[in-house]
Simulated assay, not measured.
Amino acid sequence: MQYATYENTVEKLKKHDITLHDIAVIAYDSEASYVPNLTIVQVEEALVSILHKRVVQHQIWVALELDRLAEAHLLESPLQDLIDNDDALFGVDETLGTAIAMSFDTIGVTNYGYIDKIKVGLVGELDRKGKTTSAVTTFADDIVGALAAAAASKVAHKYATNIVASDKHLAK
């Protein structure tokens, strides 16, 4: 039995045209104004750390596999139709996304909700791709948003002491 690994997870993301850099850019944009001197490398390191969590790997694998099966028309209706059309009331895609984001405290969930709502960067690209082509990206866009939110949250937690110190300086 082959278990999920970081390398396998990154490979599965690549097969869906999802790069770690594109995810990190979303997270960076979310946190750069809060963390002075933040670098994209620091955000990428946070993302890599998140992708080493087995539960996150499993959630990614399930999500991307459901997109693949739907794209190949291998699911039974009504599930096939719900995923094909990224039905607004389906919500299972957001549930998997929320589970990933929740791994990093409530800030992860609020970051994810914001990213999912405004569809920034690769999240928006995947969402539009799913609506304008035969590709199914119902879960992929939510996974990207959740990973970006989790990475932003991890950065926020790591540098929280710097942010608090900076806020105290501003209050004087």
Rank of each mutant, 00 (worst) to 15 (best):
A88Y: 07
G130R: 14
D84P: 04
F104M: 11
G91D: 14
L96Y: 13
T106Q: 13
G97H: 00
L96A: 04
D127M: 15
G124H: 08
V123D: 07
L79T: 02
T132D: 12
L89F: 08
T133Q: 12
T106D: 06
K129M: 15
D87L: 12
S103W: 04
K119V: 10
D116R: 01
S77F: 08
Y114M: 06
R128C: 11
Q80R: 01
E76T: 10
T106C: 05
L74E: 15
A99F: 05
L89C: 05
L96C: 05
L75K: 04
T133A: 13
Q80D: 14
F104D: 02
D105H: 06
T110I: 03
G121P: 08
G130L: 13
N111S: 04
D127F: 15
G97K: 01
G113C: 09
L122C: 06
G113Y: 00
K117H: 08
Y114A: 05
P78S: 07
T132M: 09
E76F: 14
D93Y: 07
L75C: 08
I118G: 06
T132V: 06
D93K: 00
S103P: 03
N111V: 02
T132I: 13
T95A: 07
A99H: 00
L74Y: 13
G121E: 10
L122V: 15
I118K: 02
M102F: 14
D93F: 12
E76D: 13
K131V: 11
L89N: 02
L126C: 14
T98A: 06
E76L: 15
K119N: 11
A99I: 09
D87Y: 12
I107K: 01
I115F: 08
A99L: 09
T132H: 13
I83A: 13
Y114W: 09
A88N: 05
G121A: 15
K117Y: 09
D81R: 02
K117P: 04
G121V: 08
F90L: 10
K131G: 10
Y112V: 01
N111G: 01
M102L: 12
R128K: 15
K119L: 15
D105G: 09
V123F: 06
G113S: 04
T133S: 09
T95M: 08
K129W: 09
V92S: 13
I100N: 02
T110A: 05
E125R: 05
I100F: 00
G121W: 07
G124K: 06
V109S: 00
D105C: 05
T132L: 12
F90S: 02
N111M: 04
I100K: 01
E76R: 02
V92F: 09
D116Q: 03
A88E: 07
A99T: 00
D87K: 01
Y112C: 05
T110K: 03
T132E: 12
R128N: 14
L79K: 10
L122I: 09
D81M: 07
N111K: 03
D81Y: 06
E76G: 12
A88F: 12
K129C: 14
D84N: 13
D86N: 11
V92P: 04
K129D: 12
Y112L: 14
Y114P: 03
D86M: 13
F90P: 12
I115Y: 00
L89W: 07
Q80A: 09
E94F: 05
T106V: 08
L126H: 08
I118F: 10
D84L: 15
E125H: 06
Q80N: 09
M102C: 08
